[in-house]
Simulated scan of single mutants.
Amino acid sequence: MDKPLDPDQSIELATRIKSKAKSSFQNASKAVSVVDGALYVQGFVACVGAPYKPIEHGWLELSDRILDPSLPHLNRKPEHIHYYPAQKLTAKQLRKALEEAQEDYPEDDPLPIYGSTPYEYYGDLMLGGKEYTQAYEAAVAKCAELNPRKNQNAQN
Score class of each variant (00 low, 15 high):
1 M>R: 12
2 D>Q: 09
3 K>P: 04
3 K>F: 11
4 P>F: 04
6 D>C: 13
7 P>C: 09
11 I>T: 14
13 L>M: 01
16 R>L: 15
17 I>N: 11
19 S>G: 00
24 S>N: 00
25 F>E: 01
28 A>E: 00
29 S>A: 15
34 V>F: 11
37 G>V: 09
37 G>I: 12
38 A>H: 01
40 Y>I: 04
41 V>N: 08
43 G>W: 09
46 A>P: 03
49 G>P: 12
50 A>F: 09
50 A>Q: 04
57 H>W: 03
62 L>G: 07
63 S>M: 02
63 S>R: 07
68 D>Q: 09
71 L>E: 07
72 P>A: 10
73 H>Q: 10
73 H>S: 10
74 L>C: 06
75 N>Y: 15
77 K>N: 14
77 K>G: 11
80 H>A: 12
87 Q>G: 01
89 L>M: 15
98 L>D: 02
98 L>H: 01
98 L>K: 15
99 E>S: 08
103 E>G: 08
112 P>L: 02
112 P>Y: 06
113 I>S: 12
116 S>I: 06
121 Y>Q: 15
124 D>P: 13
130 K>M: 10
131 E>S: 15
132 Y>E: 13
133 T>R: 14
134 Q>M: 09
135 A>T: 06
138 A>N: 15
138 A>I: 05
139 A>F: 01
141 A>R: 02
143 C>K: 02
143 C>T: 08
147 N>R: 03
149 R>Y: 15
150 K>T: 10
150 K>A: 15
151 N>F: 06
152 Q>C: 05
154 A>M: 06
154 A>H: 10
156 N>T: 08
